[in-house]
Nucleic acid binder design. Structure first.
Length: 435
DNA sequence: CCTCGAGGTCCGATAGCTGC
DNA sequence: GCAGCTATCGGACCTCGAGG
């Protein structure tokens, strides 16, 4: 695959693939969301709507007071901050609690010999061709996952389930761990495509006419092959990123952030306090790819995420002191408790800011002097009571020691149609500097 | 009491088509 | 080519019923 990039042989070690050759200097409508980012190499390995843009990371790297040599992201997600850092020549440190997403990030950040990847793909396809798969590996999945005669709904038709099993068996048989991860992620990115459901902001829902939906084995094979080949090509074309190193920490950022080592800055977007449970959003991949071995695993994972949802009953830490806006919002939420769709929302909001303060403190302890934290945060609203996340964080940050350098609203989210569709929730960039 | 599964609704973005 | 139209897709909420 040597002439794929047009880079002449020899001297390749000095010809880095730049940020601009990755993004092609595209125009983005907003820095806040992933909209339009689908077409970037690496970024469609898994459709990820919560991501912000690489352009924001570039802006932060350029606009920071302190030169960025090592940059953290406590909420790794799809890995946008870390991957962009590699293109920019900045060493990334990323934390991610969701094991599927952590693998997605690492699959993007690590370096491969693309010829070896092509050989591994061939090996997978040969094994699948001769495979006699069983559904044994799916035995512990929740009951709605695989088609069976005594159910009314299922996420995967039986023939599809057999094919997934055949591929996963073949991937498991690869000798190289980074290759197993790479191809597991390629499979992960297409699972919803071959399923009877769609995943969106509201979680999982069945497709219209899913009953008559049929995925042929040929379609399945083609999808896996094309996705894998495209990804291998992207890996190859962009293999010479300025920075090749990375640190990936798999775990709860509320604990891990304080131990990442010295950083010059941080660029991240936390989950918003909007009662979204991201464990739920990635449930299909987590189960099918074997990241969860039973319901307790799911519970542990949900407990390890930020207090941004009320999906499970949990002990919410107390709201931090020091923000008048937070105290006011909590007071109003408590008096509106009977109108809330979950009575735990006031506790969740309090816990959310407790957790966010912990992360800000962790970052502060690792930041070099005048290092900056750039965060994209979103407001929320319950029963007409606004939760102005950016303003609250701007009040809490000084109690940790930060100076608030910039607050910039750059997008409005439409409120849900049921709420009239008019009230708008802001998405805000907030920049904090260590004194 | 709890968890789990699933959906209402409507607008913006985008792909694809049509006629010039 | 391209303006303008139509069809389709999907969404950083919030709600509800079933069942343990």
């Amino acid at each position: 695959m040597d002439n794929l990039t047009g880079i002449p042989a020899g001297n390749v070690d000095v010809l880095h693939v730049s940020f601009n050759s990755w993004t092609q200097k595209r125009k983005v409508p907003t820095l806040g969301t992933n909209a339009g980012a689908e077409k970037l190499p690496f970024q469609d390995w898994h459709h990820f709507k919560e991501a912000f843009t690489p352009e924001l990371v570039a802006k932060a790297a350029k606009g920071s007071k302190r030169e960025l040599l090592r940059c953290a992201d406590p909420f790794g997600g799809s890995g946008t901050t870390a991957l962009t850092c590699q293109f920019l020549g900045v060493e990334p440190v990323t934390i991610e609690v969701n094991p599927y997403l952590a693998d997605l990030i690492e699959a993007k950040l690590c370096t491969y010999d693309s010829d070896d990847l092509v050989r591994s793909l061939g090996q997978i396809l040969r094994r699948v061709h001769f495979a006699k798969p069983s559904l044994k590996r799916f035995a512990t999945l929740p009951p709605t996952f695989i088609e069976s005669h005594n159910k009314e709904r299922w996420i995967f038709n039986k023939p599809v389930a057999y094919q997934i099993a055949a591929y996963l068996d073949a991937i498991d048989a690869l000798p190289d761990q980074s290759h197993r991860r790479f191809f597991r992620i390629q499979m992960g990115g297409m699972l919803v495509n071959v399923s009877n459901v769609v995943i969106n902001g509201k979680g999982r829902r069945y497709r219209r006419n899913w009953v008559s939906r049929f995925i042929s084995s040929h379609e399945f094979d083609t999808l896996f092959c094309e996705r894998s080949q495209k990804a291998i090509l992207e890996v190859h074309t962009h293999r010479l990123r300025k920075e090749q190193r990375y640190t990936l920490i798999r775990g709860d950022c509320r604990k891990a952030t304080a131990e990442i080592g010295q950083i010059d800055g941080a660029i991240f977007s936390p989950p918003y306090p909007n009662s979204f449970d991201y464990t739920d959003v990635y449930n299909v991949e987590l189960w099918v790819l074997g990241y969860l071995s039973g319901a307790p695993d799911n519970r542990v994972l949900r407990e390890s995420t930020l207090c941004s949802h009320v999906q499970i009953k949990r002990a919410y830490p107390l709201a931090p002191k020091g923000s008048k806006q937070l105290a006011w919002a909590l007071k109003r939420l408590e008096s509106a408790r009977n109108d809330l769709w979950s009575p735990w929302i006031p506790e969740m909001v309090g816990g959310y800011f407790h957790d966010m303060k912990l992360v800000l403190e962790g970052l502060y302890s690792q930041l070099a002097s005048e290092g900056e934290a750039w965060a994209v945060v979103g407001d929320s609203q319950y029963a007409g009571v606004p939760v102005p996340t950016a303003e609250i964080l701007a009040e809490l940050a000084p109690t940790v020691g930060y100076k608030v350098v910039n607050i910039e609203a750059f997008r409005s989210m439409r409120a849900s149609a049921q709420q009239g569709g008019q009230e708008e929730l802001d998405e805000t960039l907030i920049v904090l500097r260590k004194r």
